[in-house]
Amino acid sequence: MSKIEISHGCAFGEKPLIPQICNIIGIVEETSDVKTFRIQTPEGKKPFECRPGQLGMLSAMFTGESMFCVADQGDDYIEFTVKRVGMVTEELHSLSVGAQVGVRGPYGNWFPTESCKGRNMVFVAGGIGLAPVRAFLSYTLKHREDYGTITLVYSASNKDDLVFKKELFEVWPNEPDTHVNVSVYHACDGWEGEVCYTAPFLEKLGISTENAAAVLCGGPSLYRTCSEGLRKLGFADEDIITTLEMRMKCGVGKCGRCNIGGKFICLDGPVFTLAELAGLPSDV
């Protein structure tokens, strides 16, 4: 099993701060406060080439810019999955297909798609954290023969907060050697699946660490409990990959705020192994 190698500080580009105007060509309402936007240039092209895990700055031009991970991509589009939490995201949610938005990127590093080749992949996500995970998961499905068993463990607060329902319940479970496990924290009518927090759910599933790499993404508490959970299962920190989030304005390592120690999440990250993070200050 080869070591997981993550590239850092590998994005580059000219005129990084100026957005290009693109169109929204599709919107999926994932939950009451999460929407997925499919974005394309006016010429019908992909706004930029990027790898799974990379970021893009999306702007509702009259309101402001916000950073999102590219949740998926096709030959001629990229997708962002946006949770409504404030000014910019509220404005984005009010837009319809055909609306114009600003896009700049790609920023940040990417998931180690190469060094994970040959491994069984374990994806663990909570809530909107499935967005970055989806980018990697969907890559592994497109390159199915390069990876072993694919296991997804996903939770959200309740049934209505699960994002990418179509993929979760219709698409991914039908992919070869792909296991999708979904739980919610709070039971409700119409939910017959697991009711369980993500960390105990992980343990209950008894996921094998053999030849496996884990990808973990979620809010601060999920991150804490599930990194512990994965360790308990026997995963080494070198084999747990995560993506970090901190407030950012420029996306290119200049505006200052997203540092942990001497690293900038926008440039050196957002993707790190837990082993790499152990060597950094705990300011996240």
Partner: peptide
């Protein structure tokens, strides 16, 4: 360190950056 913001006037606007400070709580 800087922040990025904008100001609108009817159908157009200006996006600008301005000094920010890591000593402010909203910064992160």
């Amino acid at each position: 360190c800087f922040d990025i913001s904008q100001e609108n006037k009817m159908k157009d606007g200006v996006r600008f950056r301005c000094w920010d400070s890591c000593m402010f709580s909203e910064y992160t």
